[in-house]
Protein backbone atom coordinates (compact mmCIF):
# COMPACT_ATOMS: atom_id res chain seq x y z
CA UNK A 1 0.00 0.00 0.00
CA UNK A 2 1.23 3.45 -0.87
CA UNK A 3 2.21 5.33 2.27
CA UNK A 4 1.20 8.76 1.06
CA UNK A 5 -2.26 7.46 0.20
CA UNK A 6 -2.52 5.70 3.54
CA UNK A 7 -1.54 8.83 5.47
CA UNK A 8 -4.18 10.83 3.67
CA UNK A 9 -6.87 8.22 4.25
CA UNK A 10 -6.27 7.93 7.99
CA UNK A 11 -5.85 11.68 8.45
CA UNK A 12 -2.19 11.47 9.43
CA UNK A 13 0.30 14.29 9.17
CA UNK A 14 3.43 13.41 7.22
CA UNK A 15 6.49 14.61 9.14
CA UNK A 16 9.10 13.01 6.88
CA UNK A 17 8.45 11.82 3.36
CA UNK A 18 10.94 8.99 3.10
CA UNK A 19 12.80 7.84 0.07
CA UNK A 20 10.86 7.87 -3.18
CA UNK A 21 11.49 4.16 -3.70
CA UNK A 22 10.37 3.23 -0.18
CA UNK A 23 6.85 4.54 -0.08
CA UNK A 24 4.95 1.30 -0.01
CA UNK A 25 4.39 -1.38 2.62
CA UNK A 26 2.70 -4.74 2.57
CA UNK A 27 2.24 -5.35 6.28
CA UNK A 28 1.55 -3.39 9.44
CA UNK A 29 2.67 -4.10 12.97
CA UNK A 30 1.47 -2.17 16.00
CA UNK A 31 3.15 -2.37 19.38
CA UNK A 32 4.92 -0.55 22.16
CA UNK A 33 7.70 -2.96 23.04
CA UNK A 34 11.05 -2.63 21.33
CA UNK A 35 11.56 -6.40 21.43
CA UNK A 36 8.30 -6.96 19.58
CA UNK A 37 9.09 -4.29 17.02
CA UNK A 38 12.50 -5.84 16.41
CA UNK A 39 11.04 -9.28 15.92
CA UNK A 40 8.15 -8.33 13.69
CA UNK A 41 9.61 -5.48 11.65
CA UNK A 42 10.84 -5.92 8.13
CA UNK A 43 11.74 -3.90 5.07
CA UNK A 44 8.07 -3.80 4.04
CA UNK A 45 6.50 -3.13 7.45
CA UNK A 46 4.75 -0.03 8.70
CA UNK A 47 5.26 0.29 12.45
CA UNK A 48 2.41 1.88 14.40
CA UNK A 49 3.41 2.76 17.94
CA UNK A 50 2.91 4.92 20.98
CA UNK A 51 6.67 5.12 21.36
CA UNK A 52 8.29 8.31 20.22
CA UNK A 53 12.04 8.61 20.44
CA UNK A 54 15.04 8.81 18.21
CA UNK A 55 15.89 5.36 19.53
CA UNK A 56 12.73 4.02 17.95
CA UNK A 57 13.90 5.34 14.59
CA UNK A 58 17.31 3.77 15.17
CA UNK A 59 15.79 0.37 15.91
CA UNK A 60 13.50 0.67 12.91
CA UNK A 61 16.48 1.42 10.71
CA UNK A 62 18.25 -1.68 12.00
CA UNK A 63 15.39 -3.75 10.66
CA UNK A 64 15.17 -1.76 7.40
CA UNK A 65 11.70 -0.52 8.29
CA UNK A 66 10.54 1.99 5.68
CA UNK A 67 7.84 3.75 7.69
CA UNK A 68 6.64 4.63 11.18
CA UNK A 69 3.28 5.96 12.26
CA UNK A 70 3.20 7.73 15.62
CA UNK A 71 -0.18 8.16 17.23
CA UNK A 72 -2.17 10.50 19.43
CA UNK A 73 -1.50 13.64 17.44
CA UNK A 74 1.77 14.14 19.25
CA UNK A 75 4.36 16.56 18.01
CA UNK A 76 7.46 14.46 17.43
CA UNK A 77 10.65 15.98 18.77
CA UNK A 78 12.89 17.60 16.17
CA UNK A 79 15.53 14.92 16.67
CA UNK A 80 13.00 12.23 15.76
CA UNK A 81 12.06 13.98 12.55
CA UNK A 82 15.72 14.59 11.78
CA UNK A 83 16.55 10.95 12.45
CA UNK A 84 13.79 9.79 10.12
CA UNK A 85 14.80 12.21 7.38
CA UNK A 86 18.47 11.30 7.60
CA UNK A 87 17.56 7.63 7.21
CA UNK A 88 15.09 8.16 4.40
CA UNK A 89 12.26 6.87 6.57
CA UNK A 90 8.61 7.80 6.10
CA UNK A 91 7.27 9.26 9.36
CA UNK A 92 3.65 10.17 9.92
CA UNK A 93 1.59 11.15 12.93
CA UNK A 94 -1.97 9.94 13.33
CA UNK A 95 -4.33 12.31 15.14
CA UNK A 96 -6.00 9.50 17.06
CA UNK A 97 -4.84 6.86 19.55
CA UNK A 98 -3.27 3.52 18.74
CA UNK A 99 -6.54 1.58 18.73
CA UNK A 100 -8.37 4.00 16.45
CA UNK A 101 -5.34 4.35 14.21
CA UNK A 102 -5.19 0.59 13.74
CA UNK A 103 -8.89 0.59 12.94
CA UNK A 104 -8.46 3.24 10.28
CA UNK A 105 -5.45 1.49 8.78
CA UNK A 106 -7.34 -1.79 8.72
CA UNK A 107 -10.28 -0.23 6.92
CA UNK A 108 -7.99 1.34 4.33
CA UNK A 109 -6.19 -1.93 3.91
CA UNK A 110 -9.39 -3.78 3.20
CA UNK A 111 -10.67 -1.06 0.88
CA UNK A 112 -7.44 -1.16 -1.10
CA UNK A 113 -7.61 -4.89 -1.69
CA UNK A 114 -8.80 -5.94 -5.11
CA UNK A 115 -12.37 -7.17 -5.17
CA UNK A 116 -12.54 -10.89 -4.49
CA UNK A 117 -9.05 -11.01 -3.01
Amino acid sequence: MNLTDLAREIGAHVAAGGRPNCRAVDRVYAGDRISDLLTHASHTTLLVTNLSSALLVCVAELMDVPAICLVGGQNPAPEIIAAARSRGMFLMVSPVDLFETCGRVHRCWNDARPAGA
Binding site: D32, R33, I34, S35, D36, L37, L38, T39, T49, L51, S53, L55, L56
Partner: peptide, 12 residues
Protein backbone atom coordinates in the same frame (compact mmCIF):
# COMPACT_ATOMS: atom_id res chain seq x y z
CA UNK B 1 9.13 4.39 28.93
CA UNK B 2 11.30 3.85 25.86
CA UNK B 3 9.80 0.47 25.13
CA UNK B 4 12.29 -1.71 26.97
CA UNK B 5 11.75 -3.82 30.05
CA UNK B 6 9.18 -6.16 28.60
CA UNK B 7 11.24 -9.12 29.69
CA UNK B 8 11.71 -10.32 26.13
CA UNK B 9 15.36 -9.49 25.54
CA UNK B 10 17.12 -12.68 26.58
CA UNK B 11 14.39 -14.97 25.22
CA UNK B 12 14.58 -13.10 21.91
Amino acid sequence: ALGFGAGMGLPS
